[in-house]
Amino acid sequence: MKIHTTEMEWNQVPAIMPLLDSPWFMWVLLLVTLALFVFLAAQFWKLHSLPKKLAKERSQGRFVFWLCIFGLWFKPLWVLAALLMVVDWEALRAWFMGEKA
């Protein structure tokens, strides 16, 4: 059953095929892909080390640093490091003691 007719023969190729078949285009495509992976890895590392940088300001640096490093293999530790970074310890202590802010 033929639904519609086509005039494209098997020996005809789309106009983009010579570009896709050229070696220099494949090298450009490879370099762009590698650059994208390097960029994404750098952004992931910046996000990963964010709790460590902010914890240094609050003198919790060493503990949060190791949580971040171990968080590369066990993700809940990285989440714990991020939570420790944003906690206002004075407000939390006041809340536990029942003090008014």
Rank of each mutant, 00 (worst) to 15 (best):
G98C: 01
F63S: 11
Q43R: 06
T5N: 08
A101D: 09
F25H: 06
P51Y: 11
K56S: 12
K75Q: 10
P18R: 02
L72N: 13
M97W: 02
L19E: 10
L67K: 01
H48V: 04
C68I: 03
W73C: 08
E7V: 02
L40S: 15
L34E: 14
M1L: 06
F37T: 14
H4R: 04
R62S: 12
W24V: 15
A15I: 07
M26P: 00
L20F: 14
V64G: 05
C68W: 06
Q60V: 00
E7T: 08
A91V: 10
I69G: 02
L29W: 08
G61H: 02
W95T: 11
A81N: 07
V87G: 01
L34I: 15
M97A: 15
E9R: 02
G61N: 05
K53T: 14
A42N: 10
L30S: 06
F63Y: 12
E90P: 00
F25T: 13
D21P: 00
S49V: 08
L77S: 05
I3Q: 11
T33L: 03
K53G: 11
K100M: 07
K100P: 00
A81M: 05
Q43V: 03
D21C: 02
I16R: 01
A94W: 03
L31P: 02
H48A: 09
E90D: 14
W27I: 14
V87H: 00
K100N: 11
A81G: 13
I16H: 05
M97S: 12
L84D: 11
F96V: 08
F37E: 15
M85F: 03
L84M: 13
R62D: 15
L77C: 05
A15L: 05
L29G: 15
G98M: 02
E57S: 07
L72I: 13
V86L: 06
E7R: 01
W45S: 14
M97L: 11
S59F: 11
A91Q: 09
W73V: 14
M26I: 07
W95I: 03
M17N: 04
V38M: 04
T5W: 03
V13I: 07
D21H: 03
P14V: 09
M17G: 00
P51S: 12
E90I: 07
E99L: 03
A35C: 08
V87R: 01
W10E: 14
M8K: 06
S49I: 08
L92G: 02
A82M: 07
F65S: 14
I16T: 08
L47P: 00
V64Q: 05
M17P: 00
H48S: 08
V28D: 10
A15G: 02
W24D: 13
